[in-house]
Amino acid sequence: MDIEALRSFIAFVDTGSFTRAAKQIHRTQSAISMQMKKLEEVTGKPLFIKEGRNLGLTEHGRKLASYARRLLAIHDQALSDLKHRSDHPPLMLGCPDDYADSVLPQLIALILDAHPQQEISILCASSTRLRALLDRGELHAAILTRAPEKDEGYLLVHDKGVWTHGGYPELLERDLLPLVLYDADCKFHSTAIDALEKQNRPYQLIATSSSATALKGMLNKGIAVSALASSTVSGDLTILEETDLPDLPAVDIVLALAPHPHPALTAGDAAEISAKF
């Protein structure tokens, strides 16, 4: 099987979209469609199935995805091992700000365990923006949040949203629930607002930010409550265990790679990191 066709196939599996896969691979959608047809011809099995307006994987497609990840990992690791480490360029790594002091340090430590001399450049931004940068080839890898039913990336942490404040339970008694939330493209932002409105619970959205430091600072000052990922709640904040506030969704924190990964962070490396988290 053609290695680049398998790379295109995994790009579709990870993104769930031929449009995004085409951007990542720097090919046209028609070229990727031809690659997928050839894969189906080579395997002799249908790999895709219609799921409403979207395409999903058949049982054969899911089986091929498992093999393809391993084949790509071996291929990329072989190329990496044949290159001297000093030839490696800086690793461009993206991370949402809320995971910068929890998930990111552990990931960096594991990368450096394998490549002690590797230089790493870190960009903090929302998962939405980081996906766009991966698509444009401006990042080698990124920590992202995904819905648990998706196949994107390599799992690092199962997480969930929680309501939290900085030690000011009286905020919950206000006629208008004061909120500070991540920006609108955050899953917890949209879920919290939608659920409060369905409950007919009056609220005041005081501020939004992409900065975890800014949100936690406002919580510690007693300005508002917030919806955060449980793994990012620091010891100075209080998680509301029993509350009439709406439930928040579960999410997976994953490591997503560019289709052509950095030599110091191949698919094989990502799989090993996932197993160690």
Rank of each mutant, 00 (worst) to 15 (best):
115 H>G: 00
127 S>G: 13
152 E>M: 14
152 E>P: 01
162 V>F: 06
142 A>H: 12
128 T>Y: 09
84 H>T: 12
97 D>M: 05
165 H>M: 05
152 E>H: 03
172 L>R: 09
150 K>G: 05
162 V>G: 02
98 D>G: 00
130 L>Q: 08
127 S>L: 01
126 S>M: 02
128 T>S: 10
93 L>Y: 12
156 L>D: 03
167 G>D: 05
128 T>L: 05
133 L>C: 00
96 P>L: 13
101 D>V: 12
163 W>L: 01
96 P>R: 15
141 A>L: 03
86 S>R: 15
157 V>M: 10
109 A>E: 09
148 P>Y: 11
100 A>F: 13
111 I>F: 02
135 D>N: 14
129 R>L: 07
111 I>W: 01
92 M>L: 14
130 L>H: 11
111 I>L: 08
168 Y>R: 11
125 A>H: 13
129 R>Q: 10
124 C>W: 03
151 D>Q: 14
85 R>P: 03
108 I>K: 06
134 L>H: 04
141 A>Q: 03
97 D>F: 06
120 I>K: 14
129 R>M: 06
168 Y>F: 15
171 L>H: 12
155 L>F: 10
127 S>C: 02
159 D>Y: 07
94 G>D: 03
85 R>Q: 10
123 L>A: 12
138 E>K: 15
123 L>F: 11
143 I>A: 05
130 L>P: 05
127 S>Y: 02
85 R>T: 11
138 E>G: 05
109 A>F: 01
118 Q>F: 02
143 I>S: 08
113 D>L: 12
86 S>L: 10
101 D>C: 06
87 D>A: 15
118 Q>I: 13
161 G>K: 14
149 E>C: 05
152 E>W: 00
91 L>Y: 10
116 P>C: 02
165 H>F: 04
118 Q>E: 06
105 P>L: 07
104 L>V: 11
132 A>E: 08
154 Y>P: 01
141 A>D: 03
109 A>W: 01
132 A>Y: 05
131 R>S: 11
125 A>V: 04
96 P>I: 13
148 P>K: 14
134 L>R: 06
168 Y>T: 08
106 Q>V: 09
169 P>L: 08
134 L>C: 02
166 G>P: 06
168 Y>H: 15
